[in-house]
């Protein structure tokens, strides 16, 4: 589904309550950048009405039986000329997911909307490097957590063993 100009724009946001104005601002910006573009978004059954009320033309539903692969496939099939990401949720996990989706959907340029700031357009290469750095940060966090727990587990077990046998009955 494309507009008169033949272009479509993918809007990516978690569409949380309170985010309505940020969505409207991003839509206005994208429509001024690509007039007559159809704007579609990815949302859940819960967020879809909010997105449509804000002016998004159609919503690809994620959840309710549709997995990430189907969402990516449908997003790609609409050949978005550009993507817009609203960074409302200030978490690495959220940012990473939205940027990866923009990349996989094939948008040539992505307009990033940080809270309270103007749009910052970035090309595919820039987005790719952002996804790579966030993925590395995520892996590092996960590895650090696992390492902390591994060390803690070993130390606690050793101290328990050195303390000798428990008087507790086995459960």
């Amino acid at each position: 589904m494309t507009g008169k100009s033949g272009a479509s724009v993918l809007l990516l946001t978690f569409a949380r309550r309170g985010e309505e104005q940020a969505i409207r601002d991003a839509l206005a910006h994208m429509r001024s950048e690509i007039p007559d573009a159809d704007v579609f978004a990815v949302g859940t059954p819960v967020s879809a009405p909010l997105l449509q009320e804000a002016g998004v033309e159609s919503v690809i539903i994620y959840g309710a039986g549709r997995g990430a692969r189907a969402v990516v496939r449908e997003s790609r099939s609409r050949r978005p000329k550009a993507a817009a990401i609203i960074y409302w949720e200030p978490r690495l996990a959220g940012h990473l997911k939205l940027e990866a989706l923009a990349l996989l959907a094939g948008a040539r340029v992505t307009h990033r909307f940080p809270p309270g700031s103007d749009a910052r357009p970035v090309g595919r290469l820039g987005l790719m490097s952002s996804v790579a750095s966030k993925s590395a940060k995520s892996l590092l966090c996960a590895a650090a957590g696992a390492a902390l727990c591994g060390i803690a587990f070993a130390c606690l077990l050793v101290s328990q063993t050195l303390a000798g046998g428990s008087r507790a009955r086995r459960s």
């Binding site: 606690l156 050195l162 008087r167 459960s171």
Partner: peptide, 21 residues
């Protein structure tokens, strides 16, 4: 962690009921 290890060792010595109990 050091403090937790010492506390766990003490619990191990003193405990007469299991966690489930």
């Amino acid at each position: 962690l050091g403090q937790a290890c010492r506390a766990r060792a003490r619990e191990r010595r003193e405990r007469i009921l299991s966690d489930d109990e």
